[in-house]
């Protein structure tokens, strides 16, 4: 990337501020604010219907906000002088004319954006789609469609990449490819914002996460920090032949306890050393004492509990 040539204002930062979208019956996005930093992959997470797509579309000037602003490098999308050279976006996998070939789809975009025609061939090679260049879009697999979308987004060699659920419908190999591709782009100093409801995927990909539910911000920050902020609710798995005695001892410490299988307690609210000391004091024998690392999936479900689902 030729970051050095860019003006200081073209910092690649995305700023969403007080963004709200009221549809007839639904407040799809509700006073949402967050920032996305360049050089990192930011996962934009939320259950289905949380408002991710609506937010991204407002950011890209496709949907008009009811109130609030969304800027990229300090500009609204419509005010960017050369939007494709600054921002690449992949919104739907199926967004090409069924009867048009992949290469022609890209050439149409090149023509409109004033980009040289060869860029179409270059980006096809970049996403490994050159062999299918002259095939019609209707013959593409879902994975190929997704790659074509990414190719289109890369036409202008943009500083900022925005992808809406790019992993949808991809096979494991495709997902692995995408992960490597996006991480690499972030390494080059670009801003990468990826939405998903698949948290397992984000855990492997994202540096930062922005979590929303019911149109509102739930949490934002580096992945570890968001996980860390949930550490107090991390559970400890305890295996003991004297479950009743230990339960009684821990209840005194105001821990919450669930029983899993026979002789296994899942303890929340206290940490492992505290449990160990309580067991020692009560003369309870322990066979296992493990702090379960909270995974993003669980954090996410807890954070968005009660707000998920159909609205």
């Amino acid at each position: 990337m030729t970051d050095g040539q860019r003006s200081p204002t073209s910092d690649g930062q995305i700023v969403v501020s007080g963004l709200t979208k009221q549809y007839k019956n639904v407040r799809a996005v509700n006073d949402l604010s967050f920032t996305v930093a360049p050089g990192r992959v930011t996962g934009f997470l939320g259950p289905n219907g949380a408002g991710k797509t609506t937010t991204l579309r407002m950011l890209l000037n496709l949907v008009t906000p009811t109130s609030g602003t969304a800027t990229i490098s300090g500009h609204r999308y419509a005010d960017l002088s050369d939007p494709l050279r600054h921002v690449g976006a992949v919104l739907e996998a199926s967004s090409a004319h069924k009867g048009r070939t992949g290469i022609n789809h890209l050439r149409v975009i090149c023509a409109a954006a004033g980009l040289p025609k060869q860029r179409a061939d270059e980006v096809l090679a970049l996403v490994g789609l050159s062999p299918a260049a002259k095939r019609k879009f209707k013959g593409y697999s879902l994975g190929m469609k997704q790659r074509l979308g990414i190719a289109a987004a890369m036409l202008g060699d943009p500083r900022v990449l925005i992808l809406d659920e790019p992993a949808n419908g991809l096979d494991p190999e495709g997902i692995r490819w995408m992960r490597g591709f996006l991480k690499n782009l972030a390494h080059e100093g670009r801003t990468v914002l990826v939405s998903s409801h698949l948290l397992s995927e984000m855990q492997l990909l994202a540096d930062d996460v922005v979590i929303i539910a019911a149109g509102q911000l739930v949490r934002q920050g580096p992945v570890e920090q968001v996980l860390g902020s949930m550490a107090q609710s991390a559970r400890v798995r305890v295996r003991t032949p004297q479950a009743e005695a230990l339960t009684a001892a821990l209840k005194a410490q105001s821990a919450t306890i669930e029983t899993d299988e026979q002789g296994v307690l899942l303890v929340a609210g206290v940490d492992a050393p505290t449990i160990g000391r309580a067991a020692l004091a009560a003369g309870v024998e322990l066979h296992e004492l493990t702090t379960e690392r909270p995974d993003l999936e669980r954090v996410f479900l807890e954070l968005t509990a009660g707000k998920a689902g159909i609205r």
Partner: peptide, 14 residues
């Protein structure tokens, strides 16, 4: 019909 309008308006938001 082919949902290309998104790409069209991304390419030129005017």
């Amino acid at each position: 019909f082919h949902q290309t309008v998104t790409t069209t308006f991304l390419t030129n938001p005017h």
